[in-house]
Design a binder for these strands. Structure first.
Length: 757
DNA sequence: CTCTCAAAAGTCAAT
DNA sequence: CTTTTGAGAG
């Protein structure tokens, strides 16, 4: 079914399998794409060929990815191929696509277009409140338990009423959960809000309940392409099914292309069902399958390690990645005494890679849990290496940001009582829990929103001070509502901050952290202004939608010139010249919680596999012998997965402090890691660094320390040394030194624990 | 209603 | 270890 000439530019440089995946035409195509096999290229070329051959209008194409970053990249590459002809194409994430559909269709089922989106944090706040109200703790309900169960049910497309029918009504615990679930659903509805899982599930319900609405989208989208198909959950799977169904007036279903790799399925905890891809051929009879195994990203050594590791998973379709670029450098292994020691290795190694000409933004560090960032950051902050942490405690989850966003949400969606409650007393204006309860019950009795109840505060018999505060808040919100209609988001936020004195209040406290909070709020203001600039037509709702749907990986600014730190999950879909995977220890990878879950061990192995296959040229694997958890130091054992990599692929680096006769954590063969492991009290005495104390104490400031080449200095860890050169300016001055004991280091003068001798 | 301090908890990844 | 929470005083 070739529609392209063999010499078509859209096919040049593609291998036969890739070319087939671009050209095949039929109702269903599954592209099994191993890591680094050029799937984005195949997808974009496929889209381009559809448009170029006039097989489809751009507006008939829907391409779905998991992150905004992936969507942006796909759009950019499609634009390179097609130019302006990409206009009208939907290239976006599952969540963004669904929001777009829901905003158009919300009025069909009891919502308005200005609905707000609750992130997991908002959901938990609401669930917590409901559990308390229902006194449901006594039935063993916890916030995380309920949140997880509701999320699972929604991902399985089970709504409250069908759940109610499925349970044993005599089970008091289940009944208690049901009433919490009911109340949660009711509250979301009356707040005109959807939670994350609703965005997908409600779109499916919408399509099922209103076939004529579904038909509109079935007719519109004639070619649907889904990336990372192995990570779809049941609701997403159902959404795709709904969209590719035949319409009621007999138009055949859209053509569906899915791309995925079951070896990279790492989101089972979020409901991802590996069967969606494994059973694709059964779900879509006549589906054509193309396998992409040639890897264009990594060296053979890296691929051999990846193949060896993933080969230990059972029940997988065997595929072997290969490359023709050659073996490349060996994988570098390192065992540190502690997480800080490990971090120091990472930083030193990065400095040396950088000295060899590798840019910082081509380097990334991965870890299993966000808590591992602390030790890394503590070492990074004192080195001259620029870094950035992706994800983790997210900006939008900070209390001060939630407060300020509460104003924007209340203005955009006055039904959202969760947001209104949040701002009643932020900043402190004397409206406490008692007043809040009174306002809420007044609102409930009169069938109005909490926001509207503020207008009737005078009749509630509250004290003059409280009534005055409420009147003032009401006036402020009214003014905001007027501004929001006409103005920019940045102007609105500026007005809110001025009128509430929120930033001023933060600045006037003694708490040093409040200064940082004030800066965060100002950063948010900058974000709104940036949004206004990039979206001249953008509304407040558009802004709120955008911030609700940002993901960790979306924050990556490739031109930032920094080393990127992120979890292994966030790393999926990205690639770097040099990759460091840290904390490759039992209890961490596989994580102790995951190891107990069914299928957990295999999924953790896939996670490791994903990490390994992100590396183009250099791969570093490191671990520590002791790792602190909640301030408690525990013994750590090398991960079982480490032993799955053939020993000849790894070159173990000596600990620079001189590890004497301590063996590397694993040898080529024979005795397992455990027996080769020394007891901690047998470790050679090492200079006590007491990182924790020094690092968490007040930040050192050597800002005015003058250093020139030739100066002798003393460093708390590295001992005495000589300054070779000083580069940079002001607070960013960097001393290039050679230490007598530890060799060459680059230190940020401002914060390094050094003194002149 | 607000502030302060001490106890308790979090302990896995995230759209 | 850090952050959140609850109780009790002001």
């Amino acid at each position: 079914m070739t529609m392209l000439m063999p010499n078509d530019p859209l096919l040049t440089g593609l291998n036969p399998q890739q070319a087939e995946a671009v050209q095949y035409r039929g109702p269903a195509l599954l592209i099994v794409a191993g890591a680094g096999s050029g799937k984005t290229r195949v997808l974009t070329h496929r889209i381009a060929s559809l448009v170029r051959n006039s097989e489809a209008w751009p507006s008939q194409i829907l391409a779905i990815t998991f992150t905004n970053k992936a969507a942006a990249e796909m759009r950019e590459r499609a634009e390179t191929l097609l130019g302006a002809a990409t206009e009208g194409m939907w290239i976006s994430t599952f969540h963004s696509s669904c929001v777009r559909i829901l905003r158009r269709e919300a009025e069909n089922f009891g919502f308005t277009k200005s609905f707000t989106i609750y992130d997991s944090h908002d959901s938990r706040t609401l669930i917590k409140r409901i559990i308390k109200e229902f006194d449901a703790e006594s039935f063993g309900l916890t916030v995380s338990g309920v949140a997880g169960k509701i999320s699972r049910l929604k991902n399985e497309l089970t709504d409250v009423e069908s759940y109610a029918r499925s349970i044993n009504a005599d089970d008091r615990n289940e009944a208690a959960f049901l009433s919490v679930f009911r109340e949660y659903t009711r509250t979301l509805q009356s707040a005109n809000a959807f939670d994350f899982d609703d965005l997908i599930a409600q779109t499916v319900f919408l399509f099922r309940a209103f076939p004529h609405v579904a038909d509109v989208y079935r007719k519109k989208f004639r070619h649907i392409l889904v990336d990372e198909y192995q990570d779809t959950n049941h609701a997403q799977y159902a959404l795709i099914h709904e969209l590719t169904r035949e319409t009621h007036d007999g138009l055949p279903g859209a053509s569906l292309t899915v791309v995925g790799d079951s070896d990279q399925s790492i989101y089972a905890f979020r409901g991802a069902d590996i069967r969606n891809i494994a059973e694709f051929e059964r779900d879509f009879p006549g589906a054509h399958v193309v396998m992409l195994e040639q890897n264009y990203r990594s060296t053979q050594n890296i691929l051999s390690a990846a193949n060896a590791v993933i080969g230990n998973n059972f029940n997988r379709q065997d595929k072997k990645l290969w490359t023709d670029v050659g073996d490349g450098a060996k994988i570098v292994g390192f065992t540190g005494y502690s997480a800080h020691d490990e971090a120091q290795f990472v930083v030193d190694e990065i400095s040396s890679l950088h000295a060899q000409g590798l840019a910082y933004n081509d380097i990334a560090i991965f870890y299993r849990t966000n808590s591992q960032t602390r030790a890394l950051e503590e070492i990074f902050i004192r080195s001259a290496v620029p870094y950035r942490i992706l994800g983790g405690t997210k900006f939008y989850e900070r209390a001060e940001i939630k407060d300020v966003m509460g104003y924007l949400v209340t203005v955009a969606n006055p039904n959202d009582s969760l947001a209104t409650r949040r701002i009643l007393n932020a900043p402190k204006r004397g409206i406490g829990p008692a007043t809040e309860a009174q306002l809420q019950s007044f609102a409930d009795q009169n069938g109005i929103t909490l926001r509207e109840s503020l207008k009737f505060a005078d009749g509630l018999g509250l004290g003059p001070k409280v009534s005055g505060a409420i009147r003032e808040l009401d006036a402020l919100l009214s003014e905001c509502e007027a501004t929001a209609v006409a103005g920019k988001v940045g102007d609105l936020l500026t007005m809110i901050l001025e009128r509430t004195g929120y930033v001023v209040a933060l600045r006037s406290t003694r708490d040093a952290q409040d200064e940082a909070r004030a800066e965060n709020v100002e950063e948010l203001l900058a974000v709104t202004k940036e949004f206004d600039k990039n979206n001249p037509e953008g509304t407040l709702i558009d802004f709120l939608t955008e911030v609700s749907l940002v993901a960790a990986a979306d924050e990556i600014d490739d031109s930032s010139g920094s080393v990127s730190l992120m979890t292994l999950h966030t790393a999926k879909g990205l690639e770097y010249d040099a990759v460091f995977i840290t904390g490759i220890e039992e209890e961490l990878l596989p994580h102790r919680m995951a190891a107990m879950e069914p299928g957990g061990e295999a999924e953790e192995r896939r996670l490791f596999y994903v990490g390994i296959t992100r590396a183009r040229k250099h791969l570093h694997l490191s671990l520590a012998m002791q790792r602190a958890l909640f301030g408690q130091s525990n013994l750590a054992m090398p991960s079982r997965y480490l032993q799955e990599i053939p020993a000849e692929l790894i070159e173990w680096r000596e600990n620079q402090l001189g590890l004497g006769g301590v063996p590397r954590p694993l040898g080529a063969s024979g005795s397992g890691a455990t027996s080769r492991w020394r007891e901690p009290d047998a470790l050679p005495e090492r200079p006590k660094t007491e990182w924790a104390n020094r690092v968490t104490n007040k930040m050192r400031d050597n800002g005015d320390l003058e250093l020139v080449a030739g100066d002798r200095i003393h460093h708390a860890d590295f001992g005495d040394g000589t300054v070779n050169q000083v580069t940079g300016e002001g607070a960013k001055r960097v001393a290039h030194c050679t230490f007598d004991r530890s060799g060459a280091k680059k230190l940020l003068i401002k914060v390094a624990p050094i003194e002149k001798i």
